[in-house]
């Protein structure tokens, strides 16, 4: 790089003007890992600032789960009979799962939007890690999801939801929900880069998310569903997530029959396997996609 430095020595004119006078700035010393972590932090910071500066994001993130808790509790709660602690206890794990999965779609629309705005082009001309951009983006979803989990828990508590398990189990349940959503953020980030249109990816996400969250055990026990839907629900990873959370929060209604499908029998293992598979497929796929991405 010394040739560049010496080349810059021509800047003798315009003393108070800038640019050439002091030569090209060199990067501070640092290892590849520390640079990756720094890039990941800077892009995460950027996404957190977006949450702070665009109040609508926070507002909708908070209002939607509150609305769902109240709607389901008071509208369906009256009609759906669940033994034990009743519908609210049964419902909360379903609302948690649905909300965090929905929350993970921000990565899809945000990647498409950044691409459209040309910010991805700017990032890609910088000597930074492309993977860090994706890490920062998915971390942004994680932050939104963590916030909405807190809001939902408080709301749930007010309407009568209680955790009937130990603290470690409760924390494990929260971690599992956030982990699954985090892995799903990588899927959405990839789709956002592949589709390239924020509008299309937004609409398309709803077409995927409504069926996979509603044809599950999130809002009604799946054994009450008609046969084809019941089979779908039993194999649906969202059902496994909901079932795991219900078990870890101690909200499984007494005497609930468990489906025969392997995921229904082993919900926590299913979620963990799902997380690993999603990450193993979509992290490399997304990083490769990013490396050739341009407006």
């Amino acid at each position: 790089m010394s040739t560049i430095g010496s080349g810059r020595a021509t800047g003798t004119t315009a003393p108070e003007s800038d640019s050439g006078a002091h030569g090209t700035l060199e990067p501070a010393p640092g290892s590849a890992i520390s640079r990756f972590l720094s890039d990941g932090w800077v892009t995460t910071w950027r996404n957190l600032m977006k949450i702070i500066r665009v109040p609508e994001i926070l507002l909708f993130t908070m209002i939607q789960p509150i609305m769902f808790v109240l709607l389901f509790t008071y509208v369906f709660g009256a009609a759906i009979d669940i033994p034990g602690d009743g519908y609210t206890s049964f419902l909360m794990a379903g609302i948690f799962a649905q909300t965090v999965v929905f929350g993970s779609t921000y990565s899809g629309s945000a990647m498409a939007q950044d691409l459209k705005d040309g910010i991805i082009d700017r990032f890609r001309t910088l000597p930074m890690s492309g993977a860090a951009v994706l890490v920062g983006r998915t971390n942004g979803d994680l932050a939104i999801n963590a916030l909405s989990m807190i809001v939902m828990m408080i709301t749930g508590w007010i309407v009568g939801w209680r955790v009937n398990s130990s603290l470690p189990e409760f924390l494990a349940g929260v971690a599992l929900l956030l982990l699954f959503a985090y892995a799903f953020s990588w899927v959405m980030a990839y789709l956002g880069m592949a589709v390239k249109s924020p509008e299309i990816i937004n609409n398309a996400s709803f077409l995927i998310l409504f069926p996979i969250t509603f044809i599950s055990n999130a809002f009604v026990p799946s054994e009450r569903l008609p046969e084809p839907l019941r089979v779908f629900a039993e194999w649906n990873p969202v059902s496994a997530l909901v079932q795991s959370a219900r078990e870890l929060f101690g909200n499984v209604p007494p005497g609930t029959p468990v489906g025969d499908a392997w995921p229904a029998q082993n919900p926590i293992a299913t979620v963990l396997i799902g997380v690993v598979v999603l990450l193993l497929v979509f992290v490399p796929l997304s990083i490769r996609k990013f490396a050739t991405l341009s407006r």
Binding site: L25, S38, V42, R46, D117, R295
Partner: peptide, 25 residues
């Protein structure tokens, strides 16, 4: 470029800081 590639939600100063950090300055 012809499309100003800046982060709308960051301030002007923050945008430049971000770029500097991503150059690892």
């Amino acid at each position: 470029g012809q499309y100003a590639a800046v982060d709308e939600n960051l301030t002007g100063f923050e945008n430049l800081m971000m770029v500097g950090r991503l150059y690892h300055l």
